[in-house]
Write a protein that binds this DNA or RNA. Structure first.
Lengths: 243, 243
DNA sequence: TGGAGTATACTTGTATACAAGTATTATAGT
DNA sequence: ACTATAATACTTGTATACAAGTATACTCCA
């Protein structure tokens, strides 16, 4: 990883990860942030040289990113797809789709222990806000939704989540880092929204759930765009990257 | 691929596939069919020896199967999850979920060219029935649904489909092979159902679509079980496989 | 100047080699 | 008989080597 001396992905989250995963995480962040522009053609050899590892983990990383739809493997080279506004909307379509499905299942279950778990996570989010820790906040935010999704024990819904999660996480990370700097007041609203969500789960109130879900999405979806643009600005003066 | 002299996956569909893909397809079929029982621990070295290839494509295949949730990669060895009744139901949950989503989008589009394309595919299915070609029928059946799903141009819905497709395809292949032998009369109903589906798309009739979708699922879901069990019977006398 | 064909510098896919870690088995001591 | 420890036979992860194919650039010829 010679050319960049700072990483976009939190290094402490990678303690047990293999080199391949590490590369995937970092590459993903660079693509989502726009540091590596969409349309760029990535070559295994160049990446291996850049990251100073062999081609094996690079190949692994590229397969992962291809399965997440942010690159496309072609006969020669991997083409970066990236995340335009369209893709971001689509991601939230899917998230809405699966969380709605999950909620329908939740209604038929005992949700008390889940609600408790979510309250704990929300507490952690508050602490992260208090200490201005954007990464930790993002982590807990993602965990919040993951906890809900996993709670119904549906392996194929979980599979979809697993495919979506890395990109979601990256998006949220970038978004939150920006907001901690510039839109600190947003967080009171975010916390409130999550409280609503917990209430909806506890009360099994479909209306309330849909409401908080949509607000959450409208919120994030709107902001993600300008964050993304700002990241792209930021990236312009750093690296030509494509030859 | 020393120990088995017949493949479960149609070889002519693999003309351009890499060794890694080939192994994934074949391994997937063996797992879905029950030939390799769930709980079995697969080792890269053993698989490489069995398939008479190196570990590189085997590793690739295992990653693919892991992302499809039919095996689980652990510290030592890959554990076969397989498809129990629960998993099969879950797969259809997801299929229902995404096809319903797709239909909602379709309603807002011009569906004439799609309906035409589907008619063509259905014609091909009829030909396949006429010539008793279970594999070709399965191929067209899968293509039928893929055509619908891709038609809305939603890359993340397509992504979910891509993850689901291989297992679906395998399931349908095994199911159809059996029915061509034992339940030939089923096919008039299947064809009728697909015609209904096309009508629903052409008329943008939500009710009709849900109806045909559900009938299709109830149909397949019921039958898949006994096929699967019969396959498992079949597998008992063939290979110990584990060690 | 233009075009056909060839050399070259890339690309990915697969095989192999090696390192580091883990489970199992065997052995020694009590 | 049983525990602790050591040897061994596995496992995966990563690096490297090689083969085969593809795009690019170059040269030669008209």
């Amino acid at each position: 990883m010679s050319e960049y001396n700072d990483y976009l992905y939190p290094q402490k989250w990678l303690s047990k990860a293999s080199t391949g995963d590490r590369v995937a995480y970092e590459l993903r962040m660079r693509i989502i942030s726009g540091l590596i522009e969409s349309g760029t053609i990535l070559s295994e050899n160049k990446l291996a040289a850049d990251f100073e590892v062999s081609r094996s983990p690079i190949r692994e990383a590229l397969r992962i990113l291809a399965s997440e739809n942010i690159i496309r493997l072609e006969k020669m080279g991997a083409v970066v797809i990236g995340l335009s506004e369209k893709e971001i909307e689509e991601i939230y379509d899917v998230r809405l789709l699966i969380e709605t499905f999950v909620f329908e299942r939740l209604i038929k279950m005992d949700t008390t222990s889940l609600a408790l778990e979510l309250s704990k996570t929300l507490e952690m989010m508050k602490v992260a806000i208090k200490y201005n820790d954007a990464d930790e906040f993002s982590y807990q935010d993602v965990m919040f939704h993951e906890t809900i999704i996993r709670s119904i024990g549906h392996s194929y819904i979980t599979m979809i989540w697993n495919n979506l999660k890395p990109v979601m996480e990256g998006l949220i990370l970038l978004s939150m880092r920006m907001r901690f700097k510039e839109k600190y007041e947003d967080f009171t609203r975010i916390v409130k929204n999550h409280e609503l969500y917990i209430d909806a789960i506890r009360a099994k109130d479909r209306e309330l759930m849909i409401k908080s879900l949509h607000e959450n999405f409208d919120d994030v979806q709107g902001k993600v765009e300008d964050l993304w643009r700002s990241q792209q600005m930021l990236s312009k003066g750093v690296e030509p990257q494509n030859d």
